[in-house]
């Protein structure tokens, strides 16, 4: 089984440690994983801004870069969702269909494909989980609070495998952090307010570390935290799952 590591463009540029943690985590389970150097971006920034047409070259490039892999794994529910959901506007060749079907968020890959039962990670901290929306409601990594049915959460399931980690309960289980891509800039006031409220929920409930499956949410929240010099720390889910 050949796995291609797919890193969101801003993770590659600004959060290399998240890429490294993903790689190390996959290798812990002896997954044959490599990072195709030609990769760029899934095209979401353009498409969410209404410029899907400008994103199509990125879609085609993505498919070309990853078509040879059995699975394409990303530490991002959002970019994974974009590939799976929105690559429907290009011609659905066999390669495109293969790439769309086989692009997975890391938690899906760990739990559904290689079906891990335990982790060696130790992280003796109080952690608050921010459920990134595209993973939660797009990929259904968990049962959103809106929907009636049996509760589950893949991200929580993974965090519970971490030794010493205490998951705190939030007042609002899965409210959006307000990042939203260009929304963060075009609706800066609402975006910042949403982010502040999200951080406050975590702080109120005693989180030392705020984690999420998408670094984009955390980039926004961290920006707010640093500006206010708050105590709370942000870490991507994989950094915790790979903690030693």
């Amino acid at each position: 089984m050949k796995v291609g590591l797919f890193l969101p463009c801003y993770v590659d540029q600004f959060y290399p440690q998240v890429g490294i943690a993903t790689l190390e985590l996959l290798r812990q389970f002896e997954v044959e994983v490599s990072y195709p150097m030609e990769q760029t971006c899934c095209g979401q920034p353009m498409a969410n801004s209404g410029c899907e047409k400008d994103a199509i070259p990125s879609y085609l490039h993505f498919v070309e870069t990853f078509q040879a892999f059995d699975y394409i794994v990303a530490p991002s529910g959002s970019c994974t969702y974009h590939v799976r959901k929105h690559f429907d506007v290009i011609e659905q060749s066999e390669q495109v269909q293969h790439v769309r079907a086989r692009t997975l968020d890391i938690s899906e890959f760990l739990l559904d494909v290689i079906q891990i039962k335990s982790l060696t990670a130790k992280f003796p901290h109080k952690v608050g989980l921010h459920q990134s929306c595209h993973g939660l409601r797009g990929l259904r990594l968990g049962q959103g609070s809106e929907r009636v049915g049996t509760a589950y959460s893949k991200t929580e399931q993974l965090l519970q495998m971490v030794d010493g980690l205490e998951l705190i309960t939030l007042d609002r289980k899965d409210e959006c952090c307000g990042f939203g891509g260009t929304f963060a800039v075009s609706e800066a006031a609402v975006s910042a307010k949403m982010g502040k409220d999200r951080i406050a929920d975590h702080q109120r409930n005693g989180a030392e570390v705020l984690t999420a499956g998408d670094m984009s949410c955390l980039m926004h929240l961290e920006g707010l935290i640093r500006r206010r010099r708050s105590e709370i720390k942000v870490m991507h889910l994989v950094e915790i799952l790979n903690a030693k």
Partner: peptide, 10 residues
């Protein structure tokens, strides 16, 4: 108006 959303899907 279609941009007054984070597309959170709730």
């Amino acid at each position: 108006l279609p941009f007054a959303s984070t597309l959170c899907g709730s």
